[in-house]
């Protein structure tokens, strides 16, 4: 059995690499974008808030699987404005679009829970709006949203398995292939263990970040 495991490990690890790559790039892009969307959702400029609300509703209101299919198979059909993404880029685009919406909602809640008095306090000290956001608001918001962001981060590890639908070879797909070929569940058990390890690392990292931000209250 050990022989069998070491035989399929390279395939599983290469799948893990795809999973991690989707995971990291989605996080790196969609967290800052989500913060911007969150700010936009509470703007007094109503048309922008309205458009962003529509976007959030679309992204949260339909399955991510469906969005992946639309981005990869659907956008190329939009003649004469066809947008053709290679598989990997299509997957990233859909994931970033989807996760930015969720993060946007989380950040909106975060921004709204910073007391008005903090803004007024910054205002009478003549801090500019960008200075206020950067030095006062963002640090407070990060602390507030951290647990919710953590949830989404863990979800993302697992959601990344949806990329199989547009033919990308991620961890779950690698396990599936081996499982079907060799008529055994063992590869899928390994897949489960690898996912558990990935989420464990995320959990520990998130705990550490939360701990660091608890020096103030």
């Amino acid at each position: 059995m050990l022989n069998y495991i070491s035989g399929i490990m390279p395939a599983l690890l290469s799948g893990t690499r795809m999973t991690l790559s989707i995971f990291f790039w989605t996080l790196i892009c969609s967290i800052p974008l989500g913060a911007l969307v969150g700010l936009g959702l509470i703007t007094k400029f109503k048309p922008l808030a309205w458009i962003l609300n529509l976007y959030v509703w679309l992204m949260r209101g339909t399955p991510l699987l469906l969005q992946l299919i639309f981005v990869f198979y659907g956008l190329p059909l939009l003649k004469p404005y066809a947008i053709i993404f290679p598989r990997y880029q299509a997957a990233l685009f859909a994931f970033i679009l989807n996760y930015t919406a969720y993060f946007g909602e989380i950040f909106r809640g975060g921004f709204q829970s910073v007391p008005r008095g903090q803004f007024e306090s910054a205002k009478v000290l003549h801090l500019s709006y960008p200075q206020t956001i950067r030095k006062i608001v963002i640090p407070q918001v990060v602390k507030i949203v951290l647990p919710s962001i953590g949830n989404e981060v863990i979800n993302l590890v697992k959601d990344s398995s949806l990329v199989y639908v547009i033919g990308l070879g991620d961890l779950l797909r690698a396990g599936n292939v081996a499982s079907a070929r060799d008529v055994t569940l063992l590869p899928l058990v390994l897949v489960g263990i690898i996912y558990l390890m990935l989420t464990a690392v995320c959990t520990i990292a998130l705990r550490m970040i939360e701990k660091r931000s608890s020096v103030w209250r």
Partner: peptide, 20 residues
């Protein structure tokens, strides 16, 4: 008071004079 909770006492005081 509306002190900034994420900044230390000294940072609360120095933030505006240094930035503004």
């Amino acid at each position: 008071y509306q002190l900034f909770p994420n900044l230390t006492v000294m940072q609360n005081i120095t933030l505006a004079p240094t930035m503004v």
